[in-house]
């Protein structure tokens, strides 16, 4: 951002343009890979950016912005379905059943279980509402097994169970860039028995020949089923977790974009931060780079990221042992002015922070207030309107402009923390002629 005042930020045109995956990878600034003073740091790259080990997957053609935003809508709906079932249980109030607004037919959770038996004697796993992965995600590279193989996986604060595709791929595997993990070649690998307490930590489980089975299914129909096992997980050349419990997928299908699997960072029992609680104290941090050609980081341990002053922290709410990181969004500022949105608009719906969702979803009343404040501030500058981009309905054509000035946007949270959104996060651009306000509305106020 070329300039930042309290009410506006100036964007250079090249900052608006998404970097094509064919451009070169920015060298990361002052990132030390490996151990930090009291933890571990891993580089994060955008799955479809030039730094990704998967960059030339799909024959080099990343998904279109429509596809990314479509998949993102799937994910948001899947999360909301999941939350509404747990919230209903907690609140006891049945939620209205609305047909899903997404254009694509959703597999209903009552669909026959995708977990058809892995072998004739295996139990079938019931389908769970799961979580949609979406395709706009960030990946990290982990080591698994002894000797450790390297696997590029999607990391996801909206999921708990880590899994990778495994040899011999008994049923079906999707194409992945790297070799499949082969448990038979790892001297530290072992299956978890059905009787082990760890097996009951799973949200969806089964049993086959005395071995614990896991199953995860996502809102877009993707799923992974296999043996729940333990092995050594290596996060950097200095740091490993022995006996880490993960899914060894023998039946995996879906939109995983040739990643080897997924690293679960949610609040549930099977997630990495909860499994490694004694080692990292339940603390981790991530930073997404401004551009998809940049490199961010995923840190584990109390030294994660520079010390965050209490002024910049917000309470983590709703401690029901389930996956999501609930926070209390309390207001929005545009151009430095606080929008007049009744607090109940935010408290009715509740808010989570989710690394796997691309676009922030707001209650409709909050979104319309944000949109009109943003649009009126921009109108004063005479920028040309552009057609909507999938669910993003407030778009502009910045063709021919070397730089543009847009109003600042800040999200305010309980405890006074304010997220003054970076310029790269206010505008989501498919191209310089279609650059949109990077927020969207939920369907209903209590979504």
């Amino acid at each position: 951002a070329a300039g930042r005042g309290h009410d506006h930020v100036v964007l250079r045109a090249e900052d608006v343009l998404p970097s094509p995956s064919s451009s070169s990878c920015d060298t990361p600034r002052e990132h030390k890979h490996g151990a930090t003073s009291s933890g571990t740091r891993m580089p994060i790259v955008h799955r479809h950016g030039p730094c990704s080990p998967l960059a030339d997957a799909h024959g080099g053609k990343p998904p279109s912005h429509e596809e990314i935003l479509d998949a993102d809508q799937n994910r948001a709906e899947s999360i909301q379905r999941r939350v509404s079932t747990t919230t209903t249980a907690a609140r006891g109030k049945p939620k209205r059943n609305r047909p899903s607004p997404s254009r694509r037919q959703q597999p209903s959770s009552s669909a026959p279980a995708p977990g058809a038996s892995l072998s004739s004697s295996a139990a079938s796993l019931p389908a769970s509402s799961g979580r949609a992965l979406g395709t706009g995600n960030y990946v990290v590279t982990i080591g698994l097994g002894t000797p450790a193989g390297r696997y590029t996986v999607v990391f996801d604060t909206g999921s708990d169970t880590t899994w990778v595709q495994c040899e011999p791929c008994v049923v079906v595997c999707y194409e992945q860039q790297e070799k499949l993990f082969d448990p038979a070649r790892s001297s530290t690998d072992a299956n978890i028995s059905c009787a082990a307490p760890a097996c009951s930590d799973l949200y969806t489980k089964g049993c086959s020949g005395g071995h614990c089975l896991y199953g995860v299914q996502y809102g877009d129909g993707s799923y992974s089923i296999g043996f729940f096992a333990m092995d050594t997980l290596t996060l950097s050349s200095y740091d490993a977790i022995k006996g880490f419990r993960f899914g060894c997928g023998e039946r995996n299908e879906g939109l995983f974009g040739e990643a080897a699997g997924l690293l679960g960072l949610g609040r549930g029992k099977t997630s990495l931060p909860v499994q490694a609680y004694d080692k990292y104290g339940g603390v981790f941090a991530h930073c997404f780079p401004a551009r998809s050609s940049g490199t961010g980081y995923l840190d584990f341990g109390p030294g994660s990221s520079p010390a965050v002053s209490t002024k910049l922290t917000t309470p983590m709410l709703v401690d029901n042992g389930l996956t999501f990181y609930y926070v209390g969004l309390t207001g929005i500022r545009v151009g430095g002015k606080l929008l007049s949105i009744p607090p109940s608009v935010f408290t009715t719906a509740g808010t989570i922070v989710d690394s796997g969702t691309v676009i922030t979803r707001l209650p409709p009343a909050a979104y319309s207030s944000l949109r009109s404040a943003f649009a009126s501030a921009i109108a004063a500058r005479g920028y040309k309107k552009a057609p909507a981009l999938s669910l993003l309905d407030t778009c502009y054509d910045f063709t021919g402009m070397s730089q543009v000035a847009i109003p600042t946007v800040s999200l305010l949270f309980q405890g006074g923390a304010s997220l003054d959104v970076d310029a790269s996060g206010i505008i989501y651009a498919a191209s310089v002629s279609q650059a949109c306000l990077g927020f969207a509305a939920n369907e209903e106020d209590d979504d």
């Binding site: 600034r29 993102d72 948001a76 999360i79 909301q80 960030y138 604060t157 960072l265 609040r267 931060p273 609680y277 104290g281 339940g282 603390v283 981790f284 941090a285 991530h286 930073c287 997404f288 780079p289 401004a290 940049g294 490199t295 961010g296 980081y297 994660s304 990221s305 520079p306 965050v308 910049l312 922290t313 917000t314 309470p315 983590m316 999501f324 990181y325 926070v327 969004l329 719906a349 509740g350 808010t351 989570i352 922070v353 989710d354 690394s355 969702t357 691309v358 676009i359 922030t360 999200l411 923390a417 997220l419 003054d420 970076d422 790269s424 996060g425 989501y428 927020f439 939920n442 979504d447």
Partner: peptide, 30 residues
Amino acid sequence: VGIVGNTQLKTFGVVYDIGKKVVGFSPGAC
């Protein structure tokens, strides 16, 4: 629920402390 997505989190160090039950945002972290 509302969902804060990764586009709006760019360049912030987002710290999750499950033990202390807080989430922190440190600007300009990457």
